[in-house]
Simulated scan of single mutants.
Amino acid sequence: MLRKLHDAGLRAEHCYIAGFVSVGLSFSSWFLSKHLERSGIDRADRWGIFVGEWAPTFFAIGNGLQMYEK
């Protein structure tokens, strides 16, 4: 799997950047949902958690690609 991702042009740095962007999007989606929607803080928390779950996946793939690249 990592070989296919690497051959497709994906590098560890790309995954690390995606992980950090995911953390920022998690905070942004929570903040915007909390302040712009009338659904309450429960929905804002669910949005933040949903997007925040992507970050560890991106970091894990980045670590795997980094080891593959060495």
Score class of each variant (00 low, 15 high):
Ser33His: 11
Ser26Asn: 02
Leu2Met: 13
Ser29Asp: 10
Phe58Tyr: 15
Leu36Phe: 15
Leu5Thr: 03
Asp7Pro: 07
Glu13His: 07
Arg38Tyr: 12
Arg3Ser: 10
His14Cys: 00
Leu2Trp: 09
Ala44Lys: 01
Leu32Phe: 13
Leu25Trp: 08
Phe31His: 14
Gly48Gln: 00
Arg11Glu: 05
Phe27Ser: 13
Phe20Gln: 14
Glu53Ile: 11
Leu36Gly: 03
Ser39His: 07
His35Val: 05
Pro56Tyr: 02
Arg11Cys: 00
His6Trp: 15
Arg38His: 13
Ala44Gly: 05
Phe50Asp: 03
Glu53Gln: 08
Ser39Gln: 07
Gly9Asn: 04
Leu10Pro: 10
Trp47Met: 07
Ser29Tyr: 13
Leu2Arg: 01
Gly19Pro: 08
Lys34Leu: 14
Glu13Pro: 00
Arg3His: 11
Gly24Ala: 10
Trp30Asn: 09
Ile61Glu: 08
Phe59Val: 09
Gly24Asp: 04
Leu25Thr: 03
Ile61Thr: 13
Ala8Gln: 11
Phe27Thr: 13
Ala18Ile: 03
Ser29Gly: 09
Ser28Lys: 11
Gly40Met: 00
Lys34Asp: 12
Asp7Cys: 01
Trp47His: 08
Ala18Cys: 07
Phe59His: 07
Ala18Val: 09
Phe20Cys: 15
Ser26Lys: 02
Arg46His: 03
Gly19Met: 06
Trp30Ser: 05
Arg43Gln: 04
His6Gly: 00
Trp47Leu: 05
Phe20Ile: 15
Ala44Thr: 05
His14Pro: 03
Tyr16Asp: 13
Leu2Ala: 00
Ser22Asp: 03
Leu25Asp: 02
Gly40Leu: 00
Leu32His: 10
Ala8Asp: 13
Ala55His: 06
Ser26Trp: 04
Gly40Phe: 00
Pro56Gln: 04
Arg43Thr: 09
Asp42His: 07
Pro56Met: 01
Arg3Lys: 15
Lys4Asp: 13
Val51Leu: 04
Val21Thr: 14
Gly9Ile: 11
Trp30Val: 08
Asp42Lys: 10
Ala55Trp: 02
Ile41Tyr: 00
Ile61Asp: 07
Ser33Thr: 14
Leu36Pro: 00
Asp45Val: 12
His14Ala: 06
Val51Lys: 03
Ser33Lys: 01
His35Met: 09
Asp45Asn: 14
Ile49Asp: 01
Phe31Pro: 04
Thr57Arg: 09
Trp54Cys: 13
Ser28Glu: 12
Val51Phe: 01
Arg11Ile: 02
Leu36His: 09
Arg46Lys: 11
Trp47Ile: 00
Asp45His: 10
Val23Glu: 10
Ala18Arg: 05
Val23Asn: 05
Trp47Ser: 00
Ala44Leu: 02
Arg43His: 08
Glu53Tyr: 12
Pro56Thr: 02
Phe27Val: 15
Ile49Leu: 03
Arg11Ser: 02
Arg43Glu: 03
Asp42Pro: 05
Leu36Arg: 08
Leu10Cys: 06
Thr57Ser: 04
Lys4Phe: 14
Thr57Gln: 01
Asp45Ser: 11
Thr57Ile: 15
Phe27Ala: 15
Ile61Leu: 14
His35Asp: 09
Ser33Ile: 05
Glu53His: 12
His6Asp: 08
Ile61Tyr: 06
Ile41Lys: 07
Leu25Arg: 01
Arg3Phe: 11
Arg46Glu: 05
Pro56Gly: 01
Phe50Gln: 06
Gly9Cys: 08
Ile49Ala: 04
Pro56Phe: 01
Gly40Cys: 02
Ser33Pro: 00
Pro56Asn: 00
Leu36Gln: 10
Ala44Glu: 02
Tyr16Gly: 02
